[in-house]
Amino acid sequence: MGQRVQRLAAYAVIVRGDEILLSRLSERVTKHELWTLPGGGVDHGEDPRAAVVREIHEETGLEAEVGVSAHVFSMHLEDTWRRGRRVDAHSVRIVYDGWVAADAPEPHVVEVDGSTVEAAWKPLSAVLDGSVPTVSLVGEALGVLMPHQRQRVAAYAYVERDGALLLTRNSVLGPHPGVWTLPGGGVDHGESPAATVVRELHEECGLDGTVGDLLTVDDHHFTGEAPNGRREDFHAIRIVYRATVPEGVEPQVVEVDGTTDAAEWVPLAELGAGRREVSSLVAAALAAARR
């Protein structure tokens, strides 16, 4: 039996749409094309989460974030070769859920003469069917690391006047940029939904609103990328109130660099004709208002 060697390493599963970020091992590690998760050895005294962020930058040139929880994988090879010698190797691999910004540049290797020679986004389908050759850790990690689950409670205003509906447009920082929706947003911890509507009407439309009766409660469940690039299994619970705003004051966005970049009175006839892209929340609110 060879010398015992134990290694602790940290990696991240970073999925964007239908692609996964991978690093290709250099020829000094393997003579064959072989891809792995970005990551690497944890230095003495280094936090594993800090190690994986460092390794992702070195191997892909990207600035990443990782979740606080992880899965641990263990591989024991009693008789293998490491750096030209026969060893009894034990690898402990900590794998995190990771993400990069949606507008992150194309990956490229930063480290010189390291174990990685290429970094790229690879189709998930090609990884799963074996078209892209990967180390076993990739498949094992994909089998257990599901998208981050997130539930969000938000409150919105339905303000209709003179045949028009008050709507706001999602900015590039928000979900579905360019889509129009009702003014509103997430309910802060300890905040009543009605107070959320008043606050959001001011931030997104510059208007002082008065909240009326509850119109409807709607929910929306989907899996996709959050504005920060993290893949989420997202469940939105959306509370909609009827509301009124003062006459003679035009809406204008107050908050700077937020998720809203425009606010307008949109004619209901225009919405009915489908000439403007609106969120499913608008359709649900309109249906409830007609009942």
Rank of each mutant, 00 (worst) to 15 (best):
A89I: 05
G67K: 10
K31N: 14
R54N: 03
L142C: 13
T196R: 00
A64V: 13
Q3K: 15
G67P: 12
V179N: 05
G163F: 04
V135A: 12
I237K: 12
A283W: 00
R276Y: 01
E277R: 15
V13N: 08
T196C: 08
V109A: 06
A9M: 12
T30H: 07
T181K: 01
V172K: 13
V198H: 00
V211K: 02
G224R: 08
A194F: 00
G272A: 12
P177V: 03
V87E: 03
A157E: 01
D233A: 13
A9D: 13
H189M: 08
T30P: 06
R275G: 15
C205F: 10
A236G: 15
P38K: 01
Q151V: 15
G40I: 03
D47M: 00
L77T: 14
V282E: 01
V92I: 13
H235C: 03
E78A: 10
G174Y: 00
H71I: 13
P133W: 15
P267W: 05
E46P: 01
E225M: 14
S69C: 13
A101Q: 11
R161W: 09
L166I: 07
W180C: 08
V278H: 09
L268W: 06
E65S: 13
Q252H: 14
P183V: 08
P246Y: 04
P246W: 04
G2T: 07
D218G: 09
Q3N: 15
G248I: 06
A194G: 07
P177N: 02
G84P: 05
D219M: 09
V117K: 05
T223G: 08
L145N: 02
A243R: 01
A226Y: 04
Q6W: 11
P246A: 07
L281Q: 04
V127S: 08
H235T: 07
P267C: 10
S74H: 14
E200W: 00
V197C: 02
I14C: 10
V92C: 05
Y156I: 14
A226D: 12
S171W: 00
R199D: 03
R49P: 00
P193G: 01
W81I: 15
A194P: 04
P227K: 05
I237W: 13
R86V: 11
H57S: 10
S91W: 13
Y96L: 09
A89C: 09
A285D: 00
R86W: 02
G272T: 01
L128Y: 10
T181C: 01
V278C: 11
A226R: 11
V240Q: 02
V278Q: 10
D188E: 14
G130I: 11
P251C: 04
G41N: 10
G39R: 06
T216H: 11
I94W: 02
H202C: 08
L145R: 02
V256T: 11
